[in-house]
């Protein structure tokens, strides 16, 4: 018995429960209900109703990613700066929600934004008109940013922390003002983290599931909800698989782009 045999159960498990299931998705996506090879389901994704949902998911995910980047970069930058880099608690507090059930967080958000919820109660107490939030695109977007923000902060923070401080001192010694140091040195060096953050937010945001249902009152179906509906409501597994396959392909493309932009994986914690 050689030592690498210890990895055999795992290899077997991964083939059976990771590779094989993905092949099933491909198989169902490319066949029809009689089991014959067919591209009809793949082509159906291009139909206007579905295409519009795909488009909306991409569009909302993109806006969500931009907002997370704009909010998250300064947060990561300040956390990694001399002012706060010794404050481990602060870092952990920002990191923790990443590991927490998104459903719980969305549920909490729901109670804030409801028509009779906390925000509207506060608005009324201040003598302002209540705002309808639940059921709007804005509510879905806020829910998404809320869920994915930590995924942007972490990789940027990691790449900023790994940066050689002497490079910055050198730029300062050579007469660059703080804005110029940031633009010419810090920002380019933190790019791997930024790219990794963008993928870590964008990919799960596209497949967002249930957030739009809970915060958008089902008015804004997204790609994840569409997949869910095909499998659990309409029992249209072939079409559901086609949608999943498109998602898988999108993600594999993003990962290979990420690997090109950041070949050593510097930005990600992984």
């Amino acid at each position: 018995m050689k030592r690498n045999w210890f990895a055999y159960p795992y290899s077997l498990w991964m083939v059976l429960f990771t590779i094989a299931p993905m092949l099933f998705v491909v198989f169902y996506a490319l066949t029809d209900s009689s089991g014959a090879l067919s591209l009809a389901n793949m082509a159906a994704v291009g139909q206007e109703t579905y295409f519009r949902i795909l488009w909306r998911s991409l569009y909302l995910a993109l806006i969500c990613t931009v907002i997370c980047l704009l909010l998250g970069y300064p947060a990561a930058y300040f956390l990694a700066s001399k002012d706060f880099n010794k404050n481990q608690t602060l870092f952990v507090l920002i990191l923790l929600p990443m590991w927490m059930n998104f459903l719980l967080r969305t549920y909490a958000m729901m109670s804030l934004m409801e028509n009779q919820g906390i925000i509207n109660t506060l608005l009324k107490a201040m003598g302002l008109e209540p705002v309808r939030m639940i059921g709007t695109e804005g509510a879905v977007l806020v829910g998404m940013v809320y869920n994915y923000l930590p995924f942007m902060v972490l990789p940027i923070h990691t790449s900023l922390k790994k940066m050689d401080q002497r490079v910055i001192e050198a730029a300062e010694d050579l007469g660059a003002n703080p804005a110029r140091v940031f633009q010419r040195v810090t920002l380019p060096l933190s790019m791997p983290g930024v790219i990794s953050g963008i993928t870590m937010v964008f990919m799960p945001a596209v497949t967002t599931f249930a957030i739009s249902r809970l915060l958008g009152s089902g008015n804004f179906m997204m790609f994840g909800d569409l997949i869910d509906k095909q499998f659990l409501e309409l029992n249209n597994w072939h079409f559901g698989s086609s949608l999943s396959l498109i998602m898988m392909v999108l993600i594999i493309i993003s990962i290979s782009l990420l690997n090109k932009a950041d070949p050593k994986g510097e930005g990600s914690g992984m």
């Binding site: 429960f17 299931p21 998705v25």
Partner: peptide, 16 residues
């Protein structure tokens, strides 16, 4: 399994 969206992992296992 760590990078695939959970929904794809879930759906693929269910199919199998």
């Amino acid at each position: 399994p760590m990078t695939m969206p959970d929904i794809v992992t879930g759906v693929s296992l269910m199919l199998m």
